Amino acid sequence: MTTAEFVVAILAVAVGALAQGSIGFGFGTLAAPVLAILDEDLVPGSVLVLGFTVAAYVAWSERGALDWFGIRWALVGRVIGSIAGAYAVSRLSHNALAVVLSLIVLVAVAISVSGWHVRPSPSTLVSAGALSGVMGTLTSVGGPPMALVYQREEAAKLRSTLAGFFLFGASLGIFTLFVSGEFGGTELVGGLMLLPGLVGGLVVSRFAHRWLDHGWTRPTVLAMSAAAAVILLVDAAT
Protein backbone atom coordinates (compact mmCIF):
# COMPACT_ATOMS: atom_id res chain seq x y z
CA MET A 1 0.00 0.00 0.00
CA THR A 2 1.41 3.39 -1.02
CA THR A 3 1.53 6.38 1.32
CA ALA A 4 -1.42 7.98 -0.46
CA GLU A 5 -3.46 4.78 -0.21
CA PHE A 6 -2.61 4.48 3.49
CA VAL A 7 -3.86 8.03 4.10
CA VAL A 8 -7.11 7.24 2.27
CA ALA A 9 -7.46 4.06 4.36
CA ILE A 10 -6.97 6.04 7.58
CA LEU A 11 -9.59 8.56 6.49
CA ALA A 12 -12.07 5.80 5.54
CA VAL A 13 -11.63 4.18 8.94
CA ALA A 14 -12.06 7.56 10.66
CA VAL A 15 -15.31 8.28 8.80
CA GLY A 16 -16.62 4.79 9.59
CA ALA A 17 -15.74 5.15 13.26
CA LEU A 18 -17.34 8.61 13.34
CA ALA A 19 -20.60 7.15 12.01
CA GLN A 20 -20.56 4.16 14.36
CA GLY A 21 -19.71 6.24 17.39
CA SER A 22 -22.41 8.80 16.55
CA ILE A 23 -25.41 6.66 15.59
CA GLY A 24 -24.45 3.11 16.51
CA PHE A 25 -23.62 1.63 13.09
CA GLY A 26 -21.99 2.49 9.79
CA PHE A 27 -18.39 1.32 10.12
CA GLY A 28 -18.84 -1.66 7.81
CA THR A 29 -20.96 0.35 5.39
CA LEU A 30 -18.48 3.20 4.97
CA ALA A 31 -15.02 1.81 5.70
CA ALA A 32 -15.09 -1.80 4.46
CA PRO A 33 -15.74 -1.07 0.74
CA VAL A 34 -12.91 1.48 0.58
CA LEU A 35 -10.46 -0.80 2.38
CA ALA A 36 -11.39 -3.69 0.06
CA ILE A 37 -10.53 -1.55 -2.97
CA LEU A 38 -7.24 -0.34 -1.51
CA ASP A 39 -6.03 -3.72 -0.26
CA GLU A 40 -8.18 -6.84 -0.48
CA ASP A 41 -6.07 -8.48 2.23
CA LEU A 42 -7.62 -6.11 4.78
CA VAL A 43 -11.04 -7.72 4.27
CA PRO A 44 -12.50 -9.34 6.23
CA GLY A 45 -9.88 -10.02 8.93
CA SER A 46 -8.46 -6.54 9.58
CA VAL A 47 -11.90 -4.95 9.17
CA LEU A 48 -13.24 -7.29 11.85
CA VAL A 49 -10.39 -6.28 14.20
CA LEU A 50 -11.35 -2.63 13.74
CA GLY A 51 -15.07 -3.40 14.00
CA PHE A 52 -14.50 -5.29 17.24
CA THR A 53 -12.50 -2.39 18.65
CA VAL A 54 -15.04 0.32 17.82
CA ALA A 55 -17.93 -1.82 19.08
CA ALA A 56 -16.12 -2.56 22.35
CA TYR A 57 -15.40 1.13 22.89
CA VAL A 58 -18.97 2.28 22.25
CA ALA A 59 -20.53 -0.53 24.30
CA TRP A 60 -18.24 0.19 27.26
CA SER A 61 -18.47 3.99 27.15
CA GLU A 62 -22.30 3.88 27.21
CA ARG A 63 -22.74 0.60 29.06
CA GLY A 64 -25.30 2.09 31.45
CA ALA A 65 -27.80 2.43 28.59
CA LEU A 66 -27.19 -1.02 27.10
CA ASP A 67 -30.37 -3.09 26.59
CA TRP A 68 -29.32 -6.55 27.71
CA PHE A 69 -32.83 -7.92 27.17
CA GLY A 70 -32.79 -6.78 23.56
CA ILE A 71 -29.30 -8.08 22.87
CA ARG A 72 -30.17 -11.57 24.09
CA TRP A 73 -33.09 -11.91 21.68
CA ALA A 74 -31.25 -10.24 18.81
CA LEU A 75 -28.31 -12.62 19.19
CA VAL A 76 -30.66 -15.59 18.86
CA GLY A 77 -31.71 -14.16 15.51
CA ARG A 78 -28.11 -13.34 14.59
CA VAL A 79 -27.04 -16.97 14.95
CA ILE A 80 -30.00 -18.16 12.88
CA GLY A 81 -29.38 -15.49 10.26
CA SER A 82 -25.68 -16.21 10.01
CA ILE A 83 -26.36 -19.90 9.39
CA ALA A 84 -29.06 -19.03 6.84
CA GLY A 85 -26.72 -16.54 5.18
CA ALA A 86 -23.92 -19.08 4.92
CA TYR A 87 -26.33 -21.56 3.33
CA ALA A 88 -27.65 -18.90 0.94
CA VAL A 89 -24.13 -17.98 -0.17
CA SER A 90 -23.49 -21.56 -1.25
CA ARG A 91 -26.86 -22.12 -2.92
CA LEU A 92 -28.27 -18.87 -4.29
CA SER A 93 -27.19 -15.89 -6.36
CA HIS A 94 -25.30 -13.39 -4.20
CA ASN A 95 -26.42 -10.40 -6.26
CA ALA A 96 -30.08 -11.44 -6.26
CA LEU A 97 -30.04 -11.86 -2.50
CA ALA A 98 -28.33 -8.50 -2.01
CA VAL A 99 -31.05 -6.83 -4.09
CA VAL A 100 -33.84 -8.48 -2.09
CA LEU A 101 -32.28 -7.56 1.25
CA SER A 102 -31.65 -3.98 0.13
CA LEU A 103 -35.26 -3.60 -0.98
CA ILE A 104 -36.46 -4.92 2.38
CA VAL A 105 -34.42 -2.25 4.15
CA LEU A 106 -35.69 0.49 1.82
CA VAL A 107 -39.30 -0.58 2.40
CA ALA A 108 -38.69 -0.56 6.16
CA VAL A 109 -37.22 2.95 5.93
CA ALA A 110 -40.21 4.15 3.87
CA ILE A 111 -42.64 2.68 6.41
CA SER A 112 -40.74 4.34 9.24
CA VAL A 113 -40.83 7.71 7.49
CA SER A 114 -44.60 7.35 7.09
CA GLY A 115 -44.92 7.22 10.88
CA TRP A 116 -45.40 3.50 11.54
CA HIS A 117 -42.74 1.71 13.53
CA VAL A 118 -42.08 -1.49 15.45
CA ARG A 119 -40.98 -1.63 19.06
CA PRO A 120 -38.15 -3.78 20.40
CA SER A 121 -39.84 -7.04 21.42
CA PRO A 122 -38.69 -10.67 21.37
CA SER A 123 -40.27 -11.28 17.95
CA THR A 124 -39.04 -8.08 16.30
CA LEU A 125 -35.57 -8.43 17.81
CA VAL A 126 -35.16 -12.04 16.68
CA SER A 127 -36.37 -11.04 13.20
CA ALA A 128 -34.05 -8.02 13.01
CA GLY A 129 -31.13 -10.04 14.36
CA ALA A 130 -31.75 -12.78 11.78
CA LEU A 131 -31.98 -10.29 8.90
CA SER A 132 -28.84 -8.59 10.17
CA GLY A 133 -27.07 -11.95 10.30
CA VAL A 134 -28.02 -12.76 6.72
CA MET A 135 -27.01 -9.29 5.48
CA GLY A 136 -23.77 -9.33 7.43
CA THR A 137 -22.81 -12.74 6.08
CA LEU A 138 -23.60 -11.80 2.49
CA THR A 139 -22.44 -8.19 2.36
CA SER A 140 -20.64 -7.26 5.65
CA VAL A 141 -23.36 -4.62 6.15
CA GLY A 142 -25.65 -5.80 8.95
CA GLY A 143 -26.52 -2.63 10.85
CA PRO A 144 -29.75 -1.28 9.29
CA PRO A 145 -32.23 -3.95 10.51
CA MET A 146 -31.26 -3.52 14.17
CA ALA A 147 -30.96 0.25 13.87
CA LEU A 148 -34.48 0.51 12.45
CA VAL A 149 -35.92 -1.44 15.40
CA TYR A 150 -34.21 0.89 17.90
CA GLN A 151 -34.66 4.12 15.93
CA ARG A 152 -37.15 5.63 18.40
CA GLU A 153 -35.28 4.60 21.52
CA GLU A 154 -32.98 6.91 23.48
CA ALA A 155 -29.87 7.61 21.41
CA ALA A 156 -27.44 6.24 24.00
CA LYS A 157 -29.50 3.04 24.22
CA LEU A 158 -29.45 2.66 20.44
CA ARG A 159 -25.68 3.16 20.21
CA SER A 160 -24.71 0.93 23.11
CA THR A 161 -27.10 -1.90 22.26
CA LEU A 162 -26.06 -2.02 18.62
CA ALA A 163 -22.43 -1.94 19.76
CA GLY A 164 -23.00 -4.93 22.05
CA PHE A 165 -24.70 -6.75 19.19
CA PHE A 166 -21.86 -6.02 16.77
CA LEU A 167 -19.26 -6.95 19.39
CA PHE A 168 -20.64 -10.48 19.38
CA GLY A 169 -20.78 -10.55 15.59
CA ALA A 170 -17.18 -9.39 15.19
CA SER A 171 -15.98 -11.85 17.82
CA LEU A 172 -17.77 -14.71 16.07
CA GLY A 173 -16.34 -13.61 12.73
CA ILE A 174 -12.76 -13.47 14.03
CA PHE A 175 -13.12 -16.85 15.73
CA THR A 176 -14.53 -18.44 12.59
CA LEU A 177 -11.70 -17.05 10.45
CA PHE A 178 -9.11 -18.16 13.01
CA VAL A 179 -10.43 -21.72 13.11
CA SER A 180 -10.46 -21.85 9.30
CA GLY A 181 -6.89 -20.58 9.14
CA GLU A 182 -7.85 -17.26 7.56
CA PHE A 183 -6.94 -15.05 10.52
CA GLY A 184 -3.51 -14.54 12.03
CA GLY A 185 -0.76 -12.03 12.65
CA THR A 186 -1.06 -10.38 9.24
CA GLU A 187 -4.73 -9.52 9.71
CA LEU A 188 -4.12 -8.33 13.28
CA VAL A 189 -1.25 -6.06 12.24
CA GLY A 190 -3.33 -4.70 9.35
CA GLY A 191 -6.04 -3.66 11.78
CA LEU A 192 -3.60 -2.19 14.30
CA MET A 193 -1.94 -0.07 11.61
CA LEU A 194 -5.26 1.69 10.97
CA LEU A 195 -6.07 2.31 14.63
CA PRO A 196 -5.09 6.02 14.45
CA GLY A 197 -8.00 6.59 12.08
CA LEU A 198 -10.32 4.69 14.38
CA VAL A 199 -9.27 6.73 17.41
CA GLY A 200 -9.64 10.00 15.51
CA GLY A 201 -13.13 9.10 14.31
CA LEU A 202 -14.26 8.06 17.78
CA VAL A 203 -12.94 11.29 19.33
CA VAL A 204 -14.91 13.39 16.83
CA SER A 205 -17.99 11.19 17.35
CA ARG A 206 -18.13 12.24 21.01
CA PHE A 207 -18.93 15.77 19.83
CA ALA A 208 -21.11 14.67 16.93
CA HIS A 209 -23.50 12.53 18.93
CA ARG A 210 -24.10 15.33 21.43
CA TRP A 211 -25.52 17.33 18.53
CA LEU A 212 -27.35 14.36 17.01
CA ASP A 213 -28.96 13.54 20.36
CA HIS A 214 -31.02 16.74 20.08
CA GLY A 215 -33.57 15.21 17.75
CA TRP A 216 -31.31 14.26 14.84
CA THR A 217 -30.39 10.67 15.67
CA ARG A 218 -33.52 9.07 14.16
CA PRO A 219 -33.37 11.02 10.85
CA THR A 220 -29.69 10.15 10.56
CA VAL A 221 -30.38 6.46 11.24
CA LEU A 222 -33.06 6.42 8.53
CA ALA A 223 -30.82 8.24 6.05
CA MET A 224 -27.85 5.97 6.79
CA SER A 225 -29.98 2.83 6.49
CA ALA A 226 -31.33 3.97 3.12
CA ALA A 227 -27.82 4.88 1.93
CA ALA A 228 -26.51 1.45 2.92
CA ALA A 229 -29.31 -0.25 0.99
CA VAL A 230 -28.68 1.89 -2.10
CA ILE A 231 -24.94 1.14 -1.96
CA LEU A 232 -25.70 -2.58 -1.89
CA LEU A 233 -28.11 -2.21 -4.82
CA VAL A 234 -25.53 -0.37 -6.90
CA ASP A 235 -22.87 -2.93 -6.03
CA ALA A 236 -25.17 -5.79 -7.01
CA ALA A 237 -26.03 -4.11 -10.32
CA THR A 238 -22.40 -3.56 -11.36
Results as ranks from 00 to 15, higher is better:
residue 159 R to Y: 05
residue 160 S to F: 04
residue 145 P to C: 03
residue 77 G to Q: 03
residue 218 R to F: 06
residue 198 L to G: 05
residue 191 G to C: 10
residue 229 A to Y: 03
residue 151 Q to E: 11
residue 80 I to M: 07
residue 37 I to T: 12
residue 162 L to R: 06
residue 221 V to G: 05
residue 173 G to K: 12
residue 186 T to I: 15
residue 140 S to D: 11
residue 17 A to Q: 03
residue 45 G to M: 09
residue 152 R to L: 13
residue 171 S to G: 15
residue 211 W to K: 13
residue 58 V to E: 03
residue 222 L to F: 01
residue 137 T to V: 11
residue 152 R to M: 11
residue 223 A to W: 10
residue 123 S to A: 15
residue 21 G to E: 00
residue 216 W to P: 01
residue 65 A to F: 09
residue 235 D to H: 15
residue 58 V to K: 08
residue 157 K to D: 04
residue 185 G to I: 11
residue 221 V to K: 05
residue 47 V to N: 05
residue 102 S to C: 04
residue 59 A to I: 07
residue 16 G to L: 02
residue 110 A to Y: 09
residue 97 L to K: 02
residue 65 A to Y: 08
residue 89 V to S: 09
residue 232 L to A: 07
residue 96 A to M: 07
residue 185 G to K: 11
residue 70 G to H: 07
residue 233 L to D: 03
residue 220 T to M: 12
residue 198 L to K: 03
residue 178 F to C: 10
residue 182 E to P: 08
residue 212 L to Q: 00
residue 184 G to T: 11
residue 7 V to D: 01
residue 205 S to L: 10
residue 65 A to S: 13
residue 34 V to R: 05
residue 87 Y to N: 03
residue 213 D to A: 15
residue 172 L to H: 10
residue 29 T to A: 14
residue 41 D to I: 00
residue 43 V to G: 02
residue 188 L to K: 08
residue 216 W to H: 15
residue 89 V to M: 12
residue 62 E to H: 14
residue 97 L to N: 06
residue 199 V to F: 13
residue 202 L to D: 01
residue 237 A to T: 09
residue 171 S to E: 04
residue 158 L to Y: 04
residue 87 Y to P: 00
residue 135 M to F: 07
residue 108 A to T: 03
residue 127 S to W: 10
residue 80 I to A: 12
residue 9 A to Y: 12
residue 99 V to I: 13
residue 161 T to E: 10
residue 89 V to I: 14
residue 37 I to G: 05
residue 212 L to D: 05
residue 77 G to C: 04
residue 63 R to V: 13
residue 42 L to S: 06
residue 160 S to Y: 06
residue 142 G to I: 08
residue 152 R to N: 15
residue 138 L to F: 09
residue 80 I to R: 01
residue 144 P to R: 09
residue 220 T to S: 13
residue 111 I to G: 04
residue 212 L to W: 01
residue 121 S to R: 15
residue 78 R to F: 14
residue 184 G to Y: 08
residue 146 M to T: 02
residue 238 T to Q: 14
residue 217 T to M: 10
residue 204 V to D: 01
residue 27 F to E: 00
residue 193 M to Q: 15
residue 47 V to R: 05
residue 128 A to P: 10
residue 168 F to I: 09
residue 190 G to H: 14
residue 172 L to G: 12
residue 211 W to C: 05
residue 63 R to N: 11
residue 192 L to Q: 07
residue 34 V to L: 04
residue 106 L to R: 08
residue 14 A to M: 04
residue 70 G to C: 06
residue 137 T to R: 07
residue 110 A to L: 11
residue 17 A to Y: 06
residue 18 L to G: 02
residue 228 A to G: 11
residue 36 A to K: 08
residue 177 L to A: 11
residue 232 L to M: 14
residue 100 V to L: 13
residue 156 A to G: 11
residue 204 V to R: 04
residue 58 V to T: 10
residue 87 Y to M: 14
residue 213 D to V: 12
residue 140 S to Y: 13
residue 64 G to K: 14
residue 23 I to A: 00
residue 161 T to H: 11
residue 165 F to A: 01
residue 203 V to R: 06
residue 95 N to D: 15
residue 46 S to M: 08
residue 149 V to A: 06
residue 122 P to K: 03
residue 178 F to P: 07
residue 232 L to D: 02
residue 59 A to V: 13
residue 73 W to E: 02
residue 180 S to K: 15
residue 193 M to L: 15
residue 45 G to E: 09
residue 92 L to D: 01
residue 20 Q to K: 14
residue 203 V to G: 02
residue 84 A to Y: 00
residue 43 V to D: 05
residue 87 Y to D: 02
residue 174 I to W: 11
residue 11 L to K: 01
residue 94 H to D: 08
residue 30 L to F: 07
